[in-house]
Design a protein around this nucleic acid. Structure first.
Lengths: 288, 288
DNA sequence: CGGGTCTTTGATTAGGTTCAATAAGAGTGG
DNA sequence: CCACTCTTATTGAACCTAATCAAAGACCCG
């Protein structure tokens, strides 16, 4: 029911994205972006400077689902910016345990962890077809020297990443499983919103296992928690498809009400869901 | 017993540190460092370049135990490098819960989280008397433009921080309480080692509560875990003083043996401890 | 259709939190 | 210097959250 997950060879493009696709490059070939486009992509105000000199272009590369962009230990020389598609970055500890570190998507920078040791300390894998902008680090720093705002932009983006990681640590350190899953959904919703997708209805691009790894939980706990959210009407979940029904509740959720109260809440939720769907004539049913 | 914690007005200085104190600045006044000294401090190979022009100096500032270096939301304009002393950085989530993010010490950079939003997103507090180098961000980026290696150094340090945070996430996501505490001790040991202190015997500068917050555990769990390590002879712990007895075991520890085996191990540990201490004529006793 | 991966759900266990009481320091002021 | 207080640390017991083990259903792809 609802949008059955399409194995995203091509993620759903809302109308609002089409103009972006046309900006400076062509439909499906190998492409190039200039500095201004990069700054837009990174959501950095370009300060309207002389960035429009067309001398410095950055190449795009395409990856298919499952392909590895870089691996752990590989010599570092380029940063990546996601132009479209979804990925995961993964660390592998000394005894083979995978740990998902992030799910880069449009506008995100990754590969930064390679700067210090000159080797990538994580690996990046495409979760869907991806279009990435290559940022050769040497070329990049060279340009940074003549374009002050680009240099600052770089610091800014790295700083943003650091804040994100800190928020992550804070979440893992302090929040319950339910709160983690709730925030994960909220952050996805936010990201989809400013990418021009629907913030209410979307498909997860990753497995329960990957979500669990990212949130420091087991896949079963993730699954159960999503089911519980579904039951009390915060979301509608069906496999990979998610519909957000009460974003505010998800944002502020710290701990789910004890199971004794759940039944009542579930009944109420079903009633609300019914009221919301029947007027539109849809035959959709909620719950198990 | 052992080094009873001195409320470190002045942390224990081993002989190997004295020359560092003399490098370019005077004993206890307000002081200045040049670029080369900064790079040394940050453990970055200076590439033997023209960094020895003496034009750009950076001011030091002293803080006393408990003083706040910056607070959350405060306008960002400077980065800090720890020259001596110990600090903590703390995030405070939407409902007042403190979360320790890091324990900066000699050679660490902090304040980076302020670059992106132009406001600090965390607060930094001195856990001992501290001597910090001020790095006004504007001045710094200006210099970076003429000194390529400084710019690269900055990227490198920020990258290092990011990798550190990733390791933290990985730890919180995947390891047991015991493993976290063990690694915390190992990382402290390492840091003390390359600061020229003893890697085997040191005083914790933070409370159990702060350690717990940092590791995503309660203070009781930290206390219990340290006691357990003490019991089986991995460390000797007495309040804030720590003696590492089996670093390798701490490094590889994933989970403590079940309590049925503990008694045996504890007896053995006591025997070993006795053998190690009596020959030297010390009257030291181990365990409770 | 059949093999493989992913997801859901249940039952049980265990690691860690919470609550609580005690002890040990550190700092203060008489 | 000692009594008093406040903070920090240790330890115990009960409880609870999330992990683990297990089984069955859903979806995907050749």
């Amino acid at each position: 029911m609802l949008t059955t997950q399409t194995p995203d060879i091509r993620p759903d493009f809302p109308a609002s994205m089409l103009h972006v696709q046309d900006a400076g490059w062509q439909r499906q070939g190998k492409l190039w972006s200039n500095l201004k486009e990069l700054c837009d992509l990174l959501r950095l105000p370009t300060a309207a400077s002389s960035l429009d000199d067309e001398e410095s272009l950055f190449q795009h590369v395409q990856f298919k689902t499952g392909q590895r962009i870089h691996t752990i230990g590989q010599a570092f020389d380029t940063l990546y910016i996601v132009h479209s598609g979804f990925l995961k970055t993964v660390a592998i500890d000394e005894f083979g345990n995978e740990q998902v570190l992030s799910f880069p998507m449009k506008g995100d920078l990754f590969g930064v962890d390679g700067i210090h040791s000159r080797r990538y300390s994580s690996e990046a894998v495409a979760l869907s077809s991806c279009d990435l902008v290559l940022l050769p680090f040497k070329k990049f720093t060279a340009i940074g020297r003549t374009h002050a705002e680009l240099e600052h932009a770089m610091y800014s983006v790295m700083s943003r990443e650091l804040v994100r990681e800190q928020a992550m640590v804070s979440m893992l350190g302090g929040l319950s499983a339910e709160a983690r899953v709730a925030r994960f959904l909220v952050s996805l919703s936010d990201r989809f919103a400013d990418m021009g997708y629907s913030s209410k209805v979307f498909n997860l691009r990753m497995t329960r296992h990957e979500i669990g790894s990212y949130l420091g939980l087991t896949l079963e706990t993730v699954s159960r928690t999503l089911s519980a959210f579904n039951e009390i009407g915060l979301i509608i979940v069906d496999q990979r498809s998610i519909t957000i029904r009460d974003l505010d509740a998800l944002k502020t959720l710290r701990r789910l009400p004890p199971s004794t109260l759940r039944a009542k809440q579930a009944r109420k939720a079903r009633a609300v869901a019914l009221a919301a769907t029947t007027p539109s004539g849809s035959a959709q049913t909620v719950g198990s």
